[in-house]
């Protein structure tokens, strides 16, 4: 079996350069590639276009890259938890393209599946549709949306094997499976890396063909945005 293992996060991010387009998995702070984000900070690469559902919070996730002004453009769906993001947006330092969440997910899926464009009803008649082709199917109007691809896709999984097969846990799955398919180079960081053969092939979420580099993350903080509990 082809071995996709790299020895650490430094090796995993070799080739990341200024001006690249990156995908980063996660929904809020759930299922984000924490170790890859830390390495992007250390590398100090700039003028990045980041594709991610959210932009982290001020002091965690993509918010850290914003603090260091490494991001030129964000392609996202909801960015409401981040004051630094707001400041950079209002001063024009940061370019932002907002997508309906399902459109964002499908554009990434399309990028990985070789489908250059598709029609969706989301956003028709709104400012999202401005300048886009629209068409009627069975009496309903749809907008044409195009695929998204990235130079690097960074995804986070629960378990992975040396062949690059991935299993996600809970709602940390979110955007990770689609992003894994849409990177020229997909880097998977996992909580537990096992030899090929230890994961049940029936249970694999992302087949190893989509993953070029895999490593076990050094540590995971897994910060919770809204810790909500009941008493009993």
């Amino acid at each position: 079996m082809i071995n996709k293992t790299v020895k650490n996060v430094q090796e995993a991010l070799q080739g990341v350069e200024n001006g690249m387009t990156l995908m980063l998995g996660g929904f809020g702070l759930c299922g984000i590639p924490e170790n890859c984000i830390n390495e992007l900070l250390r590398l100090g690469v700039t003028d990045l276009t980041c594709i991610s559902n959210n932009a982290g919070v001020d002091d965690f996730g993509i918010g850290l890259l914003l603090q260091k002004r490494q991001v030129k453009k964000m392609i996202a769906s909801y960015v409401g938890e981040n004051a630094e993001f707001e400041r950079q947006l209002l001063t024009g330092e940061l370019e932002v393209e907002l997508n309906p969440q399902g459109t964002l997910a499908e554009r990434i899926r399309a990028g990985g599946a070789g489908i250059p464009a598709f029609f969706t009803p989301a956003g028709y008649g709104t400012e999202v549709g401005e300048g886009k082709e629209s068409r009627e199917f069975n009496g309903k109007m749809y907008l044409m949306e195009t695929w998204l691809k990235a130079d690097f896709a960074f995804v986070k999984a629960w378990k992975g094997d040396t062949a690059g097969n991935l299993i996600y846990k809970g709602t940390a799955r979110n955007f990770n499976p689609m992003m894994a398919t849409a990177g020229k180079i997909t880097v998977a960081e996992v909580e537990e890396l096992v030899p090929a053969g230890e994961l049940d092939p029936n249970m694999i979420h992302t087949p190893g063909i989509f993953v070029q580099r895999i490593f076990q993350g050094e540590k995971y903080e897994k910060r919770i945005e809204q810790r909500t509990v009941r008493s009993t």
Binding site: F27, G102, A105, G170, R173, K222, I224, E225, Q226
Partner: peptide, 30 residues
């Protein structure tokens, strides 16, 4: 931390719950 809802709140699953990608989720919606 790996189980949250769309409002980013921690939640639980129930017997019969299922988990899927955001692309599948919006496939269900659209």
């Amino acid at each position: 931390a790996d189980l949250i809802n769309a409002g980013k709140q921690t939640i639980t699953t129930l017997p019969g719950s299922s988990i899927f990608s955001s692309a599948d989720s919006f496939g269900m919606i659209r």
